[in-house]
Amino acid sequence: MKYAYYPGCSAESSASAYDATSQMVAAALGLELEEIKDWNCCGATEYFSIDSLPAYALVARNLALAGRQGTSEVIAPCSACYVNLKKVDERMGDYPQLNSDVNEALAAGNLSYTPGSVRARHLLDVICNEVGCDAVSEKVVRPLAGLTLVPYYGCYIGRPEGGFDDVENPQTLDRLLKGLGATVPDYSLKSSCCGGHMTQIGTEVALGILRGLIDLAAKLGADAMVVACPMCQLNLDVYQNQLNSHFGTTYRMPIVYFTQMMALALGMEAAELKFEEGLVPAGPMLEKWQAAEASPQPRKKKSKKALPMPEPLDGGDSG
């Protein structure tokens, strides 16, 4: 299937590794991506705080352009872009007045957009739910055996309107990484916020949040945290040194994109996957992986007295 592709501004700079490996993985899985021609910034979380109607119109321009290219679905690898595209599409559908206001603005640029005509999809969603985790895992040539990877979804995978996974306890990335052969612990902060722009405007607040996230991953024995959003990557990676000096900690937690880890498992060369763009080196993780032999996990013994554990709900519930 052909999808419109919305790389987002960070693809051009801070998250070029994500952009590159997203395209590599998509090609390997047979997903045809056609970049939206002359797309503009989604406004991140900044535009809505200043003025909401231009913020809506800004995003709607991209939807209108995607529609004009003849696609009905647009893939965004960046969670913040994804959530803005989705939110604007849905709100325009929910509120007729907003719809007509936004379209009046678009008309000033000879564009128009019908809510519901272009569906925003996160790259993770398309890979896990269209291609399918099982299909991906069948394509694995070099399993990520021996690596403990913590899946960190960040906030925008399921929020605000409930996307393709459980809002509080998403499973998509867990399933994907398990399918790649990695050990995936239950990381309870998986959908917590990374602090967003607070690293810039309230560093103290942000560092506290980031420390909690990395600390739990370290406790779980993670070799790396795997992310699906450039903002999460930026905050956790670029600010790791600063938080170490602030709190006197010594974390060296590589923060990698899920597409990088997929590409690795699908047999692509590590040297081509831009791991070196991370400020925290991914080298030790990669060396461990190359040296690792798949060894079965020791099973925990259960005491005879232990009470039964309830079964989890299938598929989760978005509430």
Partner: peptide, 15 residues
């Protein structure tokens, strides 16, 4: 009520 539906309370996740 099935407590698993409110996943942030961790029923069936935390023993």
């Amino acid at each position: 009520f099935d407590a698993r539906r409110i996943s942030q309370y961790g029923y069936a996740r935390y023993p």
